[in-house]
Design a binder for these strands. Sequence first.
DNA 1: TCCATGCTTCGATAGTCCTCGAAGCACGCG
DNA 2: CGCGTGCTTCGAGGACTATCGAAGCATGGA
Lengths: 111, 111
Amino acid sequence: MDDTSASRAFAALSHPIRLEILRLLAPAGRDGLTAGTVATRLGVVSSTLSHHLGQLERAGLVHARRQGRFMVYAIAPDGARPLIDYLAQTWDGQRPDRLAVLDRPPAVARG
Amino acid sequence: MDDTSASRAFAALSHPIRLEILRLLAPAGRDGLTAGTVATRLGVVSSTLSHHLGQLERAGLVHARRQGRFMVYAIAPDGARPLIDYLAQTWDGQRPDRLAVLDRPPAVARG
DNA sequence: TCCATGCTTCGATAGTCCTCGAAGCACGCG
DNA sequence: CGCGTGCTTCGAGGACTATCGAAGCATGGA
């Protein structure tokens, strides 16, 4: 992962609302949540939320799909891996063999 | 790690120059490098560099110490761990038992 | 004390990001 | 088609960030 994509991804994580979005989407797994649901639960107006969801999607941290009139956003299962690799590599100067915590199957949707 | 410190730390990582600084400091280990050395190697004027170093220090990613007339900056050995934990926790919804790659001794200085 | 060096802080400018309401687009339903 | 709903895009205002040169502070040495 090059510096440009890394800095863009870290920028996507640099806003509290976007961290909240991720923590809301994570337990929903691949089922995801509609944009409206996220907006309601976080108390953010739709246009503002759309902006943040766009940032997260462009950074590869969430995926979007249309479902009828609804937009469903789901966390990107491997979205954090390149970032964890980048951090580990930067600090230790070498690539980690394995990051056990991310080798687990994705969390099952429960809401 | 709460959202506020996490977002601040990710913001600190959201600028290419600051990523370069970290990659320059990492191999120097606890010996670190003077601010002037970093400025010269990256081709950044001192006041701009000072700004970036301050951001990194406030985020807990580097440490600063005075050595005579020089300011020596060194990478914070465990600076990435809370972030990796935060990411792993967010994605998997549980705390990682162990992140082997960060349990290694800090890199030896060679600069 | 005076000076030179190394770095930080200040001040100003330019650029980027966040936020909201308004307007627009996509879809499903009659 | 026309309408309602869900979301995105647009436009504008305000807030924050980056950058530089100038000024200021801290240290060591003469």
